[in-house]
Design a protein around this nucleic acid. Structure first.
Lengths: 133, 133
DNA sequence: CATGATACATACTATAGGGTAAGTACTTGT
DNA sequence: ACAAGTACTTACCCTATAGTATGTATCATG
């Protein structure tokens, strides 16, 4: 799960921000490219591992379990495995995970209003668009 | 301002998530270690560059302007420079930036409740704490 | 005439985290 | 005996982003 160096300024800063800034705390848990997308999928109910894969075709299996494990460690999702063969594993939100709903909703609301009223965004989008220039 | 490679899978994925996932959209704008902290400082009113530096002692000047420039490009903060010597520059939130307040507040609320009811968090904190082990 | 204050800029290094590709275990179906 | 399905694991590479260190312009003041 991609080891972390114990001695590094960047980790120390992260830790400091993590301890002091609640926003950083939240982003440590739902940040990254895939976590919000996974959480979004689970907001609509518990899903099997393979269902998540199908629902998010672009994600690699490594990223998927890696983030699921992290979310589990952070107590945002629960893993339930039936001891059968072939394996049957479902993931669902914990209460804490479900409590994120208003947060995600607030973010979505802001995102929509911002992308409407802010045209500079699109300029920057285009500038960074891969495969152009 | 740390150039970005045009052709990279990670950029493409970012772009895709950016276009489709509003949460990712928001996190592209307020993510990173320092942005939330800077925004928090500006929530209480406009500040000079040097005041921000003093308010956030751990930040390096490079990180500070880099993020201020990004926030400005994203239309979350405005830069006002008085043409005097020595320079006098103040930063403040735009309307869009100020609209983030409920989002940041929702995150903070969740963070507090989560860190109270979730003891695993502190275990993980301690495990990652720099200078131990 | 050198120093200090302010608001940056820039070259280089380090690291966290994402991406690719391939392998594992176990059993049922052909 | 071999492929197929499920839920992972592991080894290796690449890139985005943070950190370090130093430099720049302008003017007032001692």
């Amino acid at each position: 799960m991609t080891k972390v160096k114990e001695t590094s300024v960047i980790q120390a800063n992260k830790q400091a921000a993590f301890n002091e800034c609640p926003v950083t705390y939240v982003m440590e848990k739902i940040g990254g490219y895939w976590k919000p997308i996974i959480l979004f999928q689970l907001l609509s109910g518990s899903k099997r591992y393979s269902d998540l894969r199908k629902a998010i075709p672009a994600i690699t299996e490594k990223m998927l379990i890696q983030h699921l494990k992290q979310l589990e460690a952070d107590n945002l999702v629960v893993r339930i495995a039936k001891p059968v063969v072939p394996p049957h594993v479902t993931y669902s939100l914990t209460k804490t995970g479900a409590n994120l709903k208003p947060v995600l909703y607030a973010m979505a609301v802001w995102a929509v209003s911002d992308s409407k009223e802010n045209s500079k965004v699109f300029a920057r989008n285009l500038k960074n668009f891969p495969g152009i220039n």
